[in-house]
Amino acid sequence: MSDRRDIELIAEMVPPGARVLDLGCGSGELLAHLAAHRRCSGYGVEIADENVLACTQRGVNVIQLNLEEGLAMFEDQSFDVVLQLDTMQHLRNTEKMLRETARVGRVGIVSFPNFAHWPNRVRVATGRMPVTKALPYEWYNTPNIRVGTYADFEVLARKDGLRILDAFGIQNGEAVRRWPNLMASVAVFKFERG
């Protein structure tokens, strides 16, 4: 997700001037981009010391927290947009965090690696777990403890009463709106509480 074009694709979904919470904000690149180009304000949440430092150096507000502990610090609907980019798949409490995202933000935007992208399907068909650019790890060392697909997320969103406002895939820095579950390595969903 650190890819420049991916960041711009996500940034275009955030309304200008929005108050944004970026869960798993990394080095704060997206928040800095949103502040500079879309007059957004807000905070990042990070667990890693090096990312907390990088955000501080960049002048991005960052709160050091373990997302597995939830978002008790943040009030209901206190942000225009809550981002959870390339983060969800690392969390044990995936569903809880999704609900927390919808609680704290008027709008949630998530992105995650789409396990159903066709090269992954081919690899699984040969009897092996996929190792690709988007999923560069072996099964035994992957930090992606919750692998799902574009189509799986639609099912989860329905189950949790989330209304999908927009959804697409990203492949090579381009939005994929045709057969995203097959054609895109990254899935993106924008939603609100139903």
């Binding site: 304000s41 501080t56 507000n61 709160i63 610090m73 206190s78």
Partner: peptide, 10 residues
């Protein structure tokens, strides 16, 4: 945060 102040926490 409740007051929307600029804050970072390490």
């Amino acid at each position: 945060l409740d007051n929307r102040r600029d804050v970072s926490y390490a």
